[in-house]
C-alpha cells in the first residue's frame, strides 16, 4: 500500500469499490456538507468532492473534504487545472495530505464559459495528465515539479476521470493509457448510459492491459425525470444517452419517473458489474444524495467492506 486510502485498500484486497459524490454548497454553510455526508455515511467507500464543477463558484473542495474527513468519511479531493497554477495545485495537495485526505482526482475542469464567471481568465498551467504526474512525483520521489525536495511526502491515492463517450473514440482507451503511464491508479468514468459503447471502450482498455494497473470505476447517474434525461442528452458536453432510455423514462407517468430512474440505474450497475475489468461503481446522484443508499442496497452492494 502506498497510502492510507480506503479505496486503495479495497482494491488491494480485490474488492469492488463504491464511490459517490458531494457537491459543495454555493455558500459558507458547513451544515449542507454535513447533511450530504450523513446521507452517504457507511453507504459508499469514498466520496468525491467536486471542485467548482461546471465552473460555478462553490465552497472549496478542500474545505468540504476536511469537513467530511472530520465526520469520519473518506473524501476524494477533486482538483481542476482551470483555476490554479502549479504553485497553488501543489500547495493544496500538501494541505490536503496534512488534513488526512488520502485521495485526489485530477481533472482538466469544465471551461469557465459554462459557469457563473464566464468573464474570468483560466489558468491551465498544467493539464490533468501532468497533474497526475505531479502528484505521483510528490508522493513517490518526494519532489516538487520544480525539483526541490519535499519534507513530508503527501501520500495520495491518485485518480482521474475519463469520458469513454467523447471523441475521437479511437484514442479514448489510449488516453486512459496515458493517464496510467502518468501514474494514475484509478479512473472514474463519465456517466454511462450507452452500455454498448462503454463495453467496447472497456474491451479496448483490457486488450491493452490498462485495467490491471488502473482500476476503472464505472460512473452512473440516476435520472430524476424524463426531462433531465433529455437535457443531459442535448446539453451536457460529451454525454451519450440512447433514445430508448429517454423513451423508457417518458413511458412512465411523471410521479413514477424518479422511481423508474432509480430502477434503470440499478439495472445499469448490475450490467456494469458483469463487464470484465470494471472494479467499482461511481454513483453521481446530482443533488440527490438521499437516493444513493437505496441504489447501493438495491444493487446488492451493501454492506460496504470493513477496512482497518
Amino acid at each position: 500500500m502506498k497510502t492510507n486510502s480506503r479505496i486503495e485498500k479495497i482494491l488491494g484486497q480485490g474488492g469492488f469499490v463504491v464511490t459517490s459524490e458531494c457537491g459543495p454548497p454555493r455558500g459558507a454553510d458547513s451544515e449542507v456538507v454535513r447533511k450530504k455526508g450523513e446521507l452517504l455515511r457507511g453507504v459508499v467507500d469514498a466520496v468525491n468532492v467536486t471542485d467548482n464543477q461546471t465552473a460555478v463558484v462553490r465552497m472549496s473542495s478542500l474545505a468540504a473534504c476536511a469537513i467530511l474527513k472530520g465526520m469520519g468519511l473518506e473524501p476524494i479531493l477533486q482538483m481542476v487545472c482551470r483555476d490554479r497554477n502549479r504553485i497553488a495545485l501543489q500547495s493544496d495537495i500538501l494541505g490536503a495530505a496534512a488534513l488526512g485526505i488520502n485521495n485526489v482526482l485530477c481533472l482538466s475542469g469544465d471551461h469557465q464559459k459554462f459557469g457563473d464567471h464566464p468573464q474570468g481568465k483560466n489558468v491551465y498551467d498544467i493539464d490533468s495528465i501532468q497533474l497526475i504526474q505531479t502528484v505521483c512525483r510528490m508522493r513517490d520521489e518526494g519532489r516538487f515539479l520544480g525539483g526541490e525536495e519535499i519534507k513530508g511526502k503527501p501520500l495520495m491515492f491518485v485518480g482521474a476521470a475519463e469520458n469513454p463517450f467523447a471523441d475521437p473514440f479511437e484514442i479514448r482507451a489510449a488516453r486512459l493509457g496515458k493517464k496510467m503511464k502518468a501514474g494514475c491508479e484509478f479512473i472514474q468514468t463519465q456517466c454511462i448510459y450507452n452500455m454498448e459503447r462503454f463495453s467496447r471502450w472497456m474491451e479496448m482498455v483490457c486488450e491493452r492491459g490498462f485495467h490491471e494497473k488502473c482500476a476503472v470505476l464505472a460512473g452512473v447517474t440516476p435520472f430524476k425525470t424524463a426531462g433531465m434525461a433529455n437535457y443531459m442528452k442535448k446539453n451536457v458536453p460529451g454525454m451519450d444517452v440512447p433514445d430508448e432510455m429517454i423513451e423508457r423514462m417518458k413511458g412512465v407517468p411523471k410521479e413514477k419517473q424518479a422511481e423508474e430512474g432509480i430502477k434503470i440505474c440499478v439495472e445499469q450497475i448490475q450490467q456494469l458489474r458483469e463487464i470484465p475489468g470494471v472494479r467499482g461503481i461511481h454513483i453521481m446522484a446530482i443533488e440527490w444524495e438521499a437516493k444513493v443508499e437505496e441504489i447501493v442496497k438495491a444493487a446488492g452492494l451493501f454492506p460496504r467492506p470493513e477496512i482497518e
Partner: peptide, 11 residues
C-alpha cells in the same frame, strides 16, 4: 484549455 495532453472529455 491549452491542453498539452488532450482532448478533454468535452470533445
Amino acid at each position: 484549455k491549452s491542453l498539452l495532453n488532450g482532448p478533454c472529455g468535452g470533445s
